[in-house]
Nucleic acid binder design. Structure first.
Lengths: 144, 144
DNA sequence: CTTGACCTATGATCTAGATCTAAGGTTTAT
DNA sequence: ATAAACCTTAGATCTAGATCATAGGTCAAG
């Protein structure tokens, strides 16, 4: 069992952030002490770590609340609803993955162009690096 | 040449957001009309689209400002500085990619468990789905 | 039994990012 | 030449997310 300060320190966040997450239905301590202190279990800690990771990749707290609410349960006929939610988030994640992969490619290209190869780019910005692998996406150049 | 309203509409954002980006050194119109109207070029539009995509994958405006400032120039001896910045962002992107890939795996697992296979999970949450491919990362289960 | 480090609750403050308000100038169409 | 639809500026407001301030209860150590 962790008290609020212990859990906060273990996960490198502020005590108040834990109270904030509780008020916003993201994570409640499994119990309270006699005198009202919050008591968090190991499981609570895992949920918190999930929240922090999800935040780190750009999910909003509202989205994280949804993710945490997912309960795939064969006995439950709300299964279709869950599947829709999961598949929506999955599409979201995959869109981000695709976009990030483009950034990765561009940044690699810039990194290589820089200081490295003797006769590479004479002048290159992230925009140009990105453009060179994005032609087929959206723009129609009508430069005639 | 786009006027502010035209560019905003084309990119589905608010006029005020463009003024905000200008004030915050992210994107300035290439010129002004006689009467002071902002005039944006096609190039400006590309920068804006870059900003919007970068935002979409979780870069802050401050980070985007840095990315836009990257100018790999062989004639410029600040090249080492640029490389450090680029490589820092690259590491950042790759960390996000790894994390997102884990979410993708977990969500796929949930999606498959749900409604699909007749005898799959009886009860499964995102946490459990995530744990099952994260054992080697941090937790030590001592359930004996 | 009191000091200091912790905890409680409520409500205010801060930041980033975006949008809105107010007071007025510009352009286009009638 | 005037109404409608734009544009300008400066500054206020809003949201999400987090942190701080205040006033007080709890608890371990001296």
């Amino acid at each position: 069992m962790y008290r609020i300060g212990e859990l906060a320190k273990a996960c490198d966040i502020n005590n108040d952030t834990l109270r904030f997450y509780e008020k916003n239905a993201l994570l409640s301590p499994s119990s309270r002490s006699e005198s009202g202190y919050r008591l968090y279990t190991e499981k609570d800690k895992e949920i918190l770590q999930f929240i922090l990771r999800a935040k780190g990749v750009g999910f909003t707290l509202a989205e994280i609340r949804e993710l945490l609410s997912i309960e795939v349960n064969k006995a439950d006929n709300a299964c279709a609803d869950v599947k829709i939610l999961v598949d929506t988030k999955l599409a979201d994640v995959e869109r981000k993955l695709a976009e990030l992969t483009r950034f990765q490619t561009s940044l690699k290209r810039l990194s290589d162009a820089c200081c490295g190869g003797e006769e590479s780019a004479e002048h290159c910005t992230i925009l140009e690096a990105l453009e060179s692998n994005t032609n087929n996406v959206r723009h129609e150049h009508h430069h005639d």
